[in-house]
Every structure is written in structure tokens, then in C-alpha cells.
Design a protein around this nucleic acid. Structure first.
Length: 418
RNA sequence: GCGGGUGUAGCUCAGUCGGUUAGAGCGCCAGAUUGUGGCUCUGGAGGUCGCCGGUUCAAUUCCGGUCACUCGCCCCA
């Protein structure tokens, strides 16, 4: 092991990475804001129970992927593996049922102990929106359309496909699940080992198995459509109609199921094939039972989470450092004057770079390397006249400008403001 | 958690059929050019060849283990 190695599955976000990261967040934040979602944050850790009860003890995340530990007071604490349960807990804790429908946007780190891959890290970051207290299918349409609009503004919508399915209401889902379990039990001798495990934990997942043998059995498995009650069908129909109205394209995918217990009705994923095996960039669904399971008043909800790293990769966003204004004093008196000029320019919003050492040539090279938009050059001669040389480093044009005219002379460099 | 690939300078990569001082391009530093950047030229710094162990007179090279990344499974964002 090399020295100073980061923990497996964690990554540093250096300034360029961070700029791309922040771009995803700010596009999402702005887009969500236009729909009335307000940003909030919850703690990065919660009582383990918050996730164990909501996501289901048998889910992969809870059973083997959580960063859980006992704190010094003996409480079992877990670094959040997802945002939804935490926001729902906050909804209950703060008595927000007065405020429904409650729309929230959040962004931050999540933690799962998984085997790292491209697009899969142990600390990763998500953007997340939730709408709580809206049982109407219009909320499903809205939440999906927020996601589509964010992808659109990030210029990646065309690289994704929206997969859509319904899990129905609890009655439909339980009925289907029972039928599936009965069917697969009759064929358990032919199921893969993975699927035998799924049979007890989450039989719906067998539908999505990639195993050849499993697929042959799945072909003749009962269909969800036959178990959806009228209400669930109507609900889903309304969602589809809304998406059609908005011109949001989707593919119905009856194999799209969720690994977490709390989902009902609409389940969806924006998937890309451009990132290898980790193709879901935004995924979510309706969770009408979740808040009740957490001990709150029965309240429906729907939302999604998007992987910031995956979105940043997909958009190809690369952070670019802004172009500063370089201050290049020559001589001691000018160094002193430079402090004052720099202060004034910064108060005016400019990004100002001041080298701490070097002669004129050195500092010009540095200014060039920083991709500075302009250099302000001044020595004793200029100070005596109360001027500075303003050199445009793109064009090479240079002119003498009086001290109180610097801001005006930099008018063409709005891109150099922070 | 399971199976495969990879690991040589800050970055991208050559190379060593086991043998003396391990290379290139880019980048970095300095000089040509002590009041004017980009181009060019010259010079320089920078490597425990991922780590630990084994075999060997000798290992960066072969073998084992390990760590990290990566591809697929699993799971998901």
C-alpha cells in the first residue's frame, strides 16, 4: 500500500472535478427551484433504525452495505446510504405534515460498502428530490419531469432512456408476489443460486435476472398486469397520460423492480448505456408506505435520487478555472500599491492573482499559465504618473490607464469576476 | 461477496527473453530574455518499477500473497 492512500472507494474532488460536480448540483437545484422545490439538508448520519426499518432488513443495502457503528453512547449509528429515508424522518421529526405537499431538494454524500467500479464508489454523491403528502399521480408526473428537465439542461437527456413500471398498490403487489413465489417454488430446482436467495428476500428481482436458465423460467412466469387491480391500473394510466402530454418519452419495462421495500406504484429509472454496468443516473419511485413504517402519520411520497458522479461523467462537464486579472508590480513601492489595487478590484468582484515573487518576465509567464485575461503592470514610472499599464493577454493590446479608471478598462472582462 | 484484466516519473505510456547509471512525450524548475507572457533553444529536478514475501549469485522482470483501479456478476445512483 502506497503512503497517503485514500480509503477504498473514496475519491478526492480536486478543483476541476469539484467544478463539474457543482455544475450538476446547481443545474439540478435551479431546475427543481422552478418547480417549487426548496433545498434542505439532513445529517449525514442517522440512527440505524431509520434505514433498517424503511429500506427493509432483507434489502442488500441494509443487510450488507451500511456503514454502521456504535457511537460512544452506545447508539447504533449509520452513515446515510440514501436520502429518501432521511428526508422522511425529518418530515416526521419536524411535524411537516402541516405543509403538504412538501417539496424538497437535497444534495450530498451517501455511503455504501460496495465493491467499487466505474460509477460505483463507497462514498458517492446524490442529488435528490422528494414530494411528500401528494397521493395524486400528477405528483409522479411532476417528479419525473423534473428529472427529465435536469437531464435536458445537462445536455444528457438524449443519452438516456426512461424505463417505467408500476408495482401497484400494496394489495396488487402482495397478490403478485404470492403468485410469483408459488410459481418459482415449483421451479426452484432450475433457478440459479442468486435467484434462490432472491426468492425469499425479494422475489420480484428474479424477473430481472440475467441468468440464462432463470430467463427461461421467467418467460412463463405470471404477469404483473394480471394482478394489478383497477385502481392501480388507473393510477398508472394517468401517469402515462401526463408524461405523454409533456412529450416525455419512456419505455415500459415490466422487469423494472426495486430492491427497497418501500416502493409502490410508479418505479422509474433514467438509464444510459454510456457508463458500463452502472447505468442508472436517476432512479426513484413512489413510496406511499414509507412514512408510516417510520412511525409517522400515513403519508404518501414520491421522489428520486441521481448520482452526481455518474451525471458529471455522462455530461462530460470539465471544470475550467476562471480567468483572473494578474497584478504585476515592479519594485517595492509598486508591491505596496498592488495591495491596494487588488483590494479595490476584489471588492469590485474581480478574481485577482498576485504572485508573491518573481521579476516581470516570471510574473508574465505565470499570468499566462493561469490563463489570466489581463495583466496590470506598474512600476515607479507608472506610479509617478498615477497610471498602470493594462495589457489584454488575449490580444496583446496594452494601454495606459489612470488608477481610478482600472475598473472601466476591465469592462470587457466580465468573465474574470468571481 | 464471486470471476477476469491492469499497476513503471505529476500525467500518458515505452522497456527490461532475470544482470551495471530504467526511458520518451507532455508537465515542472532554471537560463538564453535583471520593465513585458505565448514560440524556440539549452540545461536541470523528479522513480523504494503499487506493497510484502518467496525462488535466485542477482528480481522492476519469475512465483505467491496483498492493496488499489478496472471489466463483468451481484446490487444500485
Amino acid at each position: 500500500m502506497a503512503k497517503a492512500q485514500p480509503v477504498r472507494g473514496t475519491h478526492d474532488l480536486l478543483p476541476d472535478d469539484f467544478a463539474a460536480h457543482r455544475e450538476v448540483i446547481s443545474v439540478a437545484r435551479q431546475t427543481a427551484a422552478t418547480f417549487g422545490y426548496r433545498e434542505m439538508a439532513t445529517p449525514i448520519f442517522e440512527f440505524t433504525d431509520v434505514f433498517a426499518r424503511s429500506m427493509g432488513e432483507t434489502s442488500d443495502v441494509v443487510s450488507k452495505e451500511m456503514y454502521s457503528f456504535d457511537d460512544r453512547g452506545g447508539e447504533s449509528i449509520t452513515l446515510r446510504p440514501e436520502y429518501t429515508a432521511a428526508i422522511c424522518r425529518a418530515f416526521i421529526s419536524n411535524g411537516l405534515q402541516q405543509n403538504v405537499p412538501f417539496r424538497a431538494f437535497g444534495a450530498g454524500p451517501m455511503f455504501r460498502y460496495e465493491r467499487p467500479q466505474k460509477g460505483r464508489q463507497r462514498q458517492f454523491h446524490q442529488i435528490d428530490i422528494e414530494i411528500i403528502g401528494a397521493p395524486e399521480p400528477a405528483a409522479d408526473v411532476e417528479v419525473i419531469s423534473v428529472g427529465a428537465e435536469i437531464l435536458n439542461r445537462l445536455n444528457v437527456l438524449h443519452k438516456t432512456v426512461l424505463h417505467l413500471n408500476t408495482l401497484g398498490d400494496p394489495e396488487s403487489r402482495d397478490g403478485y408476489r404470492a403468485a410469483l413465489v408459488a410459481y418459482f417454488n415449483d421451479h426452484r430446482d432450475k433457478l440459479s443460486e442468486d435467484s434462490l436467495g432472491r426468492l425469499s428476500r425479494n422475489p420480484l428481482r428474479i424477473l430481472d435476472s440475467k441468468d440464462e436458465g432463470d430467463r427461461r423460467i421467467v418467460e412463463h412466469a405470471p404477469l404483473f398486469g394480471d394482478y394489478l387491480n383497477q385502481q392501480s391500473q388507473d393510477f398508472f394510466g394517468t401517469v402515462l397520460f401526463g408524461l405523454d402530454t409533456l412529450g416525455i418519452a419512456y419505455e415500459l419495462n415490466p422487469r423494472l423492480v426495486r430492491g427497497l421495500d418501500y416502493y409502490t406504484h410508479t418505479a422509474f429509472e433514467f438509464v444510459t448505456d454510456a457508463l458500463g454496468a452502472q447505468g442508472a443516473v436517476i432512479a426513484g419511485g413512489r413510496y406511499d408506505g414509507l412514512i408510516g413504517q417510520l412511525g409517522g402519520p400515513a403519508t404518501p411520497g414520491i421522489g428520486w435520487a441521481g448520482g452526481i458522479e455518474r451525471l458529471a461523467m455522462l455530461s462530460g462537464a470539465t471544470g475550467e478555472a476562471p480567468r483572473p486579472i494578474a497584478l504585476i508590480p515592479i519594485g517595492e513601492a509598486a508591491e505596496t500599491e498592488a495591495l491596494k489595487i487588488g483590494q479595490a478590484l476584489r471588492r469590485d468582484g474581480f478574481i485577482v492573482d498576485q504572485a508573491f515573487r518573481g521579476n516581470l518576465g516570471k510574473r508574465m509567464k505565470r499570468a499566462d499559465k493561469l490563463n489570466a485575461a489581463a495583466a496590470l503592470i506598474f512600476g515607479d514610472d507608472e506610479l509617478a504618473k498615477g497610471v498602470v499599464q493594462v495589457r489584454d493577454l488575449t490580444t496583446g493590446d496594452q494601454s495606459e490607464v489612470s488608477l481610478d479608471g482600472i475598473t472601466r478598462a476591465l469592462a470587457g472582462h466580465e468573465g474574470s469576476r468571481a
